[in-house]
Design a protein around this nucleic acid. Structure first.
Lengths: 124, 124
DNA sequence: CTGGATCCGATTTGATACTG
DNA sequence: CAGTATCAAATCGGATCCAG
């Protein structure tokens, strides 16, 4: 089992390494949306209704730092920032598509009712 | 974006659903080891040195509950328990293999030094 | 509009002890 | 040998506030 280091973190296998780059709840959904279009921060935010401000910014920062997306700032007021996918990000899209299809398979397999449900606000 | 429910949890896309079944730090490494052989609890444990007892049991329980592995108990003392992969688990293997190869690609891309490193015990 | 920082609760995980 | 239970530590994520 090949242990290795990246950014001061120990990894035990390539799967773990890959999942740390594009895994988690939000990175794939974000990349997926940038697949074939340029989006502004607010557009991504609106497109993924359940993501919080904090998560969206932090995940975008990481994706940018690791070269999956580009961040283009227009020096205007109010600020305008566009996100585009990189070549590295496009490679990830291939994998995301495969996982996505696998997920759909699994859902059939598990007989998940895929009808849209009404989510209700969390009770305080 | 299709929201749906499974086991009282809300999912927002098929990727998230798939990753909840076979994602996390340990499930793929566990499945990977059962790919083509039957293993006892202790053998898996020894094969994945960094996993804790608690994580291995909990992850095995989940994989079993969702039909990715079978758990076979031999009523002997001391106890003997074998884990085998199911058809559903084998399907997952194809995906894991793809992610694994992608991870290897990424590592080259990031120029990760893949030489084995000595991990040192955490200081108390 | 975009984004950083802070506080704080929830969830996850590790260490340890105990059992048949 | 395999597994459960418990407690503490660490991590993660949401809500909120401030700023250019």
């Amino acid at each position: 089992m090949p242990d290795f280091l990246y950014n001061s973190k120990v990894y035990y296998n390539p799967v773990e390494f890959a999942m740390d780059r594009i895994g988690g709840t939000w990175k794939m959904p974000i990349l997926w949306r940038l697949k074939d279009k340029v989006l502004r921060y607010g557009e991504i935010k609106r497109d993924i209704p359940h993501i919080t401000h904090k998560m969206l910014t932090s995940q975008l920062r990481e994706l940018e730092a690791e070269g999956f997306v580009n961040r283009v700032v227009y020096p205007v007021v109010p600020p305008k920032v566009e996100y585009t996918i990189t070549a590295r990000g496009k490679k990830a899209i291939t994998i995301i598509e495969i996982i996505r299809n696998y997920g759909l398979d699994l859902m059939k397999d598990f007989e998940v009712p895929s009808e849209k449900i009404k989510t209700q606000k969390k009770l305080k």
